[in-house]
Structure formats: C-alpha cells, structure tokens
Write a protein that binds this DNA or RNA. Structure first.
Lengths: 229, 229
DNA sequence: CCAAAAGTGTTCTATGTACACCCATGC
DNA sequence: GCATGGGTGTACATAGAACACTTTTGG
C-alpha cells in the first residue's frame, strides 16, 4: 500500500469521530450522559458526547478526552463498543463513528460537575429524541453492559470505592432489570473472592451495613465454559 | 456539530481501511488467509486482506468486498471485531483499521480459488512475519471465535452444509484447542435441537457416519446467565 | 417497641463430567 | 476377521434455585 493508494482510497470528506455512551448509577437507576444536538440540523434532539478523531492519540485516549470534562479527575472505565459507518446519519457529512462505552462510579458523579458545557444525565427509560441513531448506540451499549455483568467484574465500576452488599446487589438488579435472591447473591460474590470486608459501616434506616471494597488483585473474569448449547 | 467543526477535525491524512481475519478449516486445522505485504515497507512480511474504506457502502459491505475474490459465491460469516487507530503501524500513514473477522465454510474453500491475486492460507500455528500488528488482530480474532463458539452456533459456519457429528466435534476441538468427550458432545448438540439428521451418510474408513444439517430456524444463541462469578 | 434494612443455611433440582463397550463398513 | 471410525447410557459431582427467620440499629 502506497501513499498514492491512500489518496485514491479514503482520505477525503469522511468525518471521523468518537462517541461515548457514559453510564452512571443514581438512586437505583441507570443514567446516560447527553448533550444537545445542533439545533439547525436536529431540532429538539440530543446526542452522545463526542469529539473528532485525532490520529496523534490512541482511540482510547481520544474517547477518554471526550468525556474528561464530565468525569473530573475520576478515570471512567472505558471499552470500545462498535464502529458505525452507515451513511445517512448526517445530512451533509459521511460519518464514521467509533463508539466507546464507559462507566462512571457513583462518587465521581456527585463530585466535580462543571456547568460550562451543556450536558444532562437522562435515565434510560426516559431518553429524549436522539440524533444520528445514537439511540441504537445506547441500546447496544446497554446490551453489552448487561452481558459483561454476567461474566466479569464491571459492576464494581459503577460503585464507589466502599459499598455495601445491598448496594452491589441493587446495581446488578438495576442493570439487569430483574430481582435477584439476596442469599444466593451474597454467597456467590463472597465465594468469588473479588471483594474484601472493611471495618466501615454504612448507616441509615435499619441495621448498619458492613462496607466492602473491590480487591484490586481479583480475577475479573470467569470463563463462560458452557459449550454451546 | 457543524461542517466547520468537521474541517477542523479529522478529514485529512488519515487512511481508513478495512481488514478481514478470514478463518477456514482444513484437515482439522484452522487456517487464516494472508497476502504478501509491500516489499519495500515490510520486506518478507504478510498482511491481512484489506481494502480502503468507501463511505458509499456500509462497513460490513466494505469488509465483504475485501474478501469477495477469495470466497467465490459463498457468503462468509462476517462480524465486526475491533477498530485499531494506533499510529506507528505504518511508516508514512496514519492508519485507522476497522477489522472484521470472518468464517468460510470448508466446501467454499475447495471450490473457486482465483489465482490472479497472491494469497495463501496459513495454519494458525505457522504464521509468517506479519506487518502492521496484524498478528495482534489475528490473536484477538481467535479469542473472539473461541469465545463465541461456547455460547453461539458460529461453529457451523466453518462446516459444509452436510456434516457428521464427528466432523462437528473436530471443529470444536480444533478451534478450542482441546479434546471433548464424544458422548457428552453428542448429547448436548442433539438436545439443543439446532441440527437435524438427514438420510445421507459419509463413507470412509470404518462405519459410515450419518450426516446432519444445521436447522435454519434454530436459536443460535444461549444466554450465558452465569452471574459473575 | 416498632419499622427498616442487614445478615444467615439448607434442600432440591439441573447441569456437567467421567467413563467403556458394541456396531457397521471396507479391505 | 480385523482395523477403523460411528454410535450409545449411566452414575457421580458440582452448580444453581428456591425459600424464611433472626439481628441490629434509629426513632
């Protein structure tokens, strides 16, 4: 492949961007971060935070910078989701959207939130109209999140450093959209040896809850090992 | 986002390409399709089949066209794998590689193979030197294939339309890299109701093997439902 | 003492795993 | 008749699911 080939190929008129589906948890609901879309092109619609692709950085760095204004100094968990190249999503541009999905821990949400950019957190069941098929992006990101929750430890990325077992269970229930059995849930999480108890307690109504912490040395994934079917 | 933003962004000097990791099975080994890389830039190295991105088509169509010369009229199974944006993979270009992985059924392999392009099938354990980190692409594609084999019916994509249960089992064994128990394997596959027996038999040494066929109405995926851990 | 949430074990069922012999064909 | 791969069932171990009551705190 030569530079001539490059010119013949695809270096013209394609707008390469990154988009991030940033999830966070609040009041036992899943939220996603959106910004208002261009009023002229998509009146009344919102869009995912994004930024143009810069080849000077890795894709992940690019994606991280898209959401840096909203995450403060907390590092969000980031993972590449999919690349969408379909034309027709924008009236005058050929878009190539490399989409990441990201998880922001609950304590990061409440801390630094700069109001100099117009952004809002929307609960997943009350999304506004979305431009450029970003609704599809979000739907797919949610599927991936649900899926990953079942065989990896991503769930902890949505929680603060210290959390009670009930908080952890609620996280799972909210993301998966179903109730889980308390005793079974606790037994499995504890047997997995991925969290460790601390000496702290969460006070509130009822009996105080012991707080746990994710073990940084934990094995974060289990093999599915199911052998279709 | 406006057209001005687009120009400020990333419409210059980035070469967008598709690459396909095309797997096929032969003599109970997994093979991947490669073409010789540019002799000047990467002497002695090979690369994955690829083509420049055209925004007139969907990404999947683009990818499909990369391998069309080698698949004949057979449709290969195609799935987006990952997008690699790291600079430094090419001495003079900023590459953005959208990588697909693909499976070609064994009967497609033996039929039409046009020799007007220089390509070769390499067994996975004897890969040549690879340009532009394509070795990483292949490694990741293999991981994804192994993973999918355990919860979906992709395995059948590597087989011809009619196959014996032993052939199916060998496919699984080769991809996963381990031996499976014959009786357990058969029980599970048959209970899953994804294949149906035909009246045909495969002759050879020993007792003839009944041939089966994948049921097009089969449910091709099972939920992992394992709930970490 | 009452409300509210935390914490705790056992039984049953389903799924996965280990394992050895007879069968049908070609030579 | 023998070599070769095809085909079959059972017993045991492990993992998942269902289920109800006691404990600790604040008001």
């Amino acid at each position: 492949m030569t530079d001539a080939a490059a010119k013949a190929g695809s270096t013209t008129s394609i707008y390469i961007e990154l988009r991030v589906v940033l999830f966070s948890l609040r009041d036992n609901r899943l939220f996603v971060l959106l910004t208002p879309a261009d009023e002229q092109l998509f009146p009344g619609a919102w869009e995912l935070p994004g930024c143009p692709f810069s080849s000077r950085e890795s894709l992940e760095k690019n994606a991280s910078q898209c959401i840096a204004p909203f995450t403060g100094q907390h590092e969000a968990y980031l993972e590449q989701l999919y690349s969408y190249g379909d034309s027709g999503r924008h009236p005058s541009l050929d878009l190539l959207s490399i989409v990441y999905f990201a998880l922001l821990s609950a304590d990061a949400l409440s801390s630094g939130r700069p109001a100099d950019v117009d952004v809002r957190w929307f609960p997943l069941d009350q999304l506004p109209p979305l431009a450029m098929k970003h609704g599809d992006f979000i739907e797919y990101a949610l599927r991936r999140l649900r899926y990953k929750l079942e065989y990896s430890a991503v769930g902890f990325e949505l929680l603060p450093e210290y959390f009670s077992l009930s908080e952890l269970q609620h996280t799972y229930e909210v993301v998966l959209g179903e109730k889980l059995d308390k005793r079974n849930f606790r037994r499995r999480i504890l047997q997995a040896n991925v969290i460790e108890p601390t000496q702290q307690y969460r006070l509130g109504e009822g009996r105080p809850a012991r707080l746990y912490r994710y073990r940084p040395d934990a094995v974060a994934e289990v093999k599915a090992r199911r052998l279709f079917p």
